[in-house]
Design a protein around this nucleic acid. Structure first.
Lengths: 357, 357
DNA sequence: CAATTATAACGAATCGTTTCAATAAAACAA
DNA sequence: TTGTTTTATTGAAACGATTCGTTATAATTG
C-alpha cells in the first residue's frame, strides 16, 4: 500500500515535475525564468506552467530561502508605535517596501533597552536582510551603536545620526527648521519669545536650539534666558505632554510676558497650549504658538498648529532606498559605504500663529 | 586543496559537532533540549554548549522552518496605519506577541482592495502561521471574507464581525458604548442633542445608532430627526474630519438649537469641535461634545474630549490569544472553532461635556 | 550468569528548492 | 565524414537542521 491515502500537506515541485512529465530541475528553471530557460522551447514551458497551475503549486518559501539565503524581509524597530511621528514614517517605509516586494517585520521597543536588544536578536536570528531603526524619542545611544554594528547587516537609522558614521542615517535638518520657525515668529513681529526646549539628552534638542541661536545672532534678536526652559528627560510620550504643560505653567507664573512660544515639538506644543488655555490666554490672539514635526493631530487641533514639518514619508522612503541599495550591494558582495541624508524641513503656517497686534 | 581557505558564511550544526566531538544529531538534541536529551549526561551537554558558544553558533532558521514547517510569525494587515485607532491596537498585539516569542509582519492596505489582496497573497506565500486583520474604517466586505477563508490559516478580525462567523473576531460593544454615551449627556441634563452618525456602510455606525435609539426609547427621550446627520462614505481619514466639519456647519446653519453633540467617533468630534469653535460656540460651556474610541489625541485636545473608550490594547491582546490558540490547535491537528469576543466600552469623562446650565 | 532494560550516541533520511555538471540529440561547419 | 556548437533535459549534490531507527555499551534484574 502506498501513501496515496495520506493527504499531502502541499504540492511540491516534484509533483509538478511528475504531472508535466519533466524533471524537477526543468520545472524550477522554467518557473523561475532562470538563465537556462532560454534553451527551453515554448511548448515545454507551456506544459510546465499548465501543470503548476493545475496543481496549484506554490513554491515553499522555506526551502527557497534555505538555498538562496534570502527572504525579502527587513526588520523595522521603533521605540514607541504610539508616537504619531512614527506612524507617518512607517507609512513612507511601507510604500517603498511594497514596491520592492519586501515585507517588514515590525518591532516596538517601548523605549526599553532590554526589549530593543531582544528584538534585535530575534531579527538577526531570522536573518532579515536589512534593518531600519526609527530612533524617535530615544535615549539609548552609545552601546546601541555597537549592537547594531554587531549584526553586520545593512542598517539605516531614521531620525538620528550615530556618532560613528558607519551606519547610514536619514535625518531632518533640525537646525534649519528651527531657524525658519523663529524667522516666522520674528517676521510676525514677535520679539519676546518663550522657548520650551527638548530634553537635553536628545540630539535634536541641541540642533534645534542651534537653529534658534543662529537666527538670533543673524538678526540680533535678544533671547531672554528666563524665557527658556528645558523639558526633562522623559521616556513616556504622553507624560512628555504633561511635562510641557507644567513647564509652561511655571513660565506663566513668573509673570514675564511673551507674545509667542516656540515648542520643541508638536507634542510639547499641545501641552503648552493647554497651559495657555488654562491661564485664559488665547492662542493665537494673545500668544502665538509654534511646534515642530507636523504630526497628524496638529492640523486637527483648534487652533490648528503652525509648525515645522518633517517630511516623514519622504524620510521613510529615503531610508528604504538606502537600505535596498545596501541589501543588493551585500547580495552581490559589493560593499556599499554608509550614506547620510539630511532632508529639509518645511514651515507650515496654520492658525496658531499671527502677527503681534 | 580543500575549502579551508573559503570563508564560511556561517557556522552550522556540523561545525559544532566537529568542535565538540559529537555527532550533529546529538548536538541538535542537546541544543533543543529534545526529549531524548534526558539520556545525555551533563558533561556532554556542557561540552556541546561550550562548543556552540565558542563558535557563535546560531541555528539557521530557514532550515529549521523547512523541517518544522513553522516560523513563529503572524501577519497583521490593517487598512490605515495613520489611524491612531490602529496604533493602540497594534500596541496591544505587539505586547502579547512578544510574550509568545512571535514576530509580526505588518502590512498596510491603504484601504485599497488590490493592495489588501496582494498583501494577503504575500503573507500566505510566506506561510505566516496566523493572520490578524484590523478592520478599521473599512468598506471592503463581502469578498474579503472569501479571500480570508481561502487561506485556511487561523485568522482573527479585529473591529468587525464577518457575516459568516467562520472567522474569529474581536469587537467592541458599540451599542452599549453609545448607550452609555447618551446616558451621560442625558444625566447632565441635555435633551436637545445633535448626532453626527458614521458612514452608512460601516457596521459600527448602525450598532452605535441602535444604542442611541435604545436609550431614547428607555427614557422616552425624543430624537429630533433634523438634528441627525450622516457622515458620507469616505475612505480617507482626514477627509473624514473635514466632512464632519462641514456637516456640523450645516447643522449649525439651520439654526436648530442643541446643547450637546454626539459624534460618531473622536475624529468626527474633532471636526465638529472645529465647526463649533468657528461659529463661536464654546465647548463645553455652550455645547457639550462627546466622541467615541478614545484615540490618543483625544486627551490632548483643549478641551480634552469626553468619549467612549474602546479597550484597544485589550482588544489586540484578546485577538492574539485567540490566534495563538488557533495556531497551536492547527499545529496539533486539532480543529478549533471560531471564537467571537465582544469587549465592553467604557465611558471616559473629560472636559468636553458639562451640565446644561 | 544470562536476559533485559536504561543510557548514550550516531547515521542516514528528510524537508523542497536550486544549480552545477553531465548527457544526448540536433544543427552546423570544415 | 568527422568534429564542434547549440539546444534540451536531467540526475545528483547541495542548503542546514531534525528525527527515526539502530547500535553499542552500561546497569539492572531474576
Amino acid at each position: 500500500m502506498n501513501r496515496q491515502g495520506l493527504r499531502k500537506a502541499s504540492v511540491t515541485i516534484r509533483d509538478v515535475a511528475r504531472e508535466s512529465g519533466f524533471a524537477a530541475s526543468t520545472v524550477s528553471i522554467v518557473l523561475n525564468n532562470a538563465p537556462l530557460a532560454r534553451y527551453i522551447p515554448p511548448a515545454t514551458k507551456a506544459r510546465i506552467h499548465k501543470a503548476a497551475k493545475k496543481l496549484g503549486y506554490h513554491p515553499n518559501i522555506f526551502a527557497k530561502s534555505l538555498r538562496s539565503k534570502r527572504n525579502h524581509t527587513v526588520g523595522v524597530i521603533l521605540f514607541d508605535i504610539t508616537d504619531p511621528y512614527c506612524t507617518l514614517i512607517l507609512r513612507g517605509i511601507e510604500k517603498s517596501l511594497y514596491q520592492e516586494s519586501f515585507l517588514s517585520i515590525l518591532a516596538d521597543a517601548h523605549n526599553e533597552r532590554a526589549r530593543f536588544e531582544r528584538y534585535l536578536e530575534m531579527m538577526l536570528e531570522r536573518r532579515v536582510e536589512g534593518l531600519l531603526v526609527l530612533a524617535n524619542w530615544l535615549y539609548l545611544d552609545i552601546n546601541l551603536l555597537a549592537d547594531l554594528e554587531r549584526g553586520k547587516i545593512p542598517t539605516v537609522i531614521i531620525g538620528r545620526e550615530l556618532d560613528s558614521n558607519a551606519t547610514s542615517s536619514v535625518t531632518v535638518d533640525d537646525e534649519g527648521g528651527a531657524y525658519s520657525a523663529l524667522a516666522h515668529l520674528y517676521s510676525l513681529g514677535h520679539r519676546k519669545i518663550a522657548f520650551v526646549r527638548g530634553p537635553r539628552a536628545l540630539a535634536s534638542s541641541k540642533a534645534r536650539w542651534r537653529g534658534v541661536q543662529r537666527f538670533a545672532k543673524d538678526t540680533r534678536l535678544e533671547l531672554d534666558p528666563k524665557l527658556v526652559v528645558d523639558l526633562p528627560d522623559q521616556v513616556n510620550l504622553t507624560a512628555g505632554v504633561d511635562d510641557a504643560f507644567r513647564i509652561t505653567e511655571d513660565l506663566l507664573k513668573q509673570k514675564r510676558t511673551f507674545s509667542a512660544l516656540m515648542a520643541y515639538d508638536d507634542m510639547t506644543a499641545f501641552g503648552a497650549l493647554r497651559a495657555l488655555a488654562k491661564a485664559g490666554i488665547k492662542v493665537p490672539q494673545e500668544c502665538s504658538l509654534i511646534g515642530f514635526d507636523d504630526i497628524n493631530p496638529s492640523q486637527l487641533f483648534v487652533p490648528s498648529l503652525t509648525t515645522v514639518r518633517q517630511p516623514m514619508e519622504a524620510m521613510g522612503a529615503s531610508a528604504v532606498s538606502i537600505l535596498i541599495e545596501g541589501i543588493s550591494a551585500a547580495a552581490e558582495n559589493r560593499s556599499g559605504s554608509a550614506i547620510h541624508r539630511k532632508l529639509p524641513a518645511e514651515l507650515v503656517i496654520r492658525e496658531s500663529t499671527q502677527a503681534v497686534p
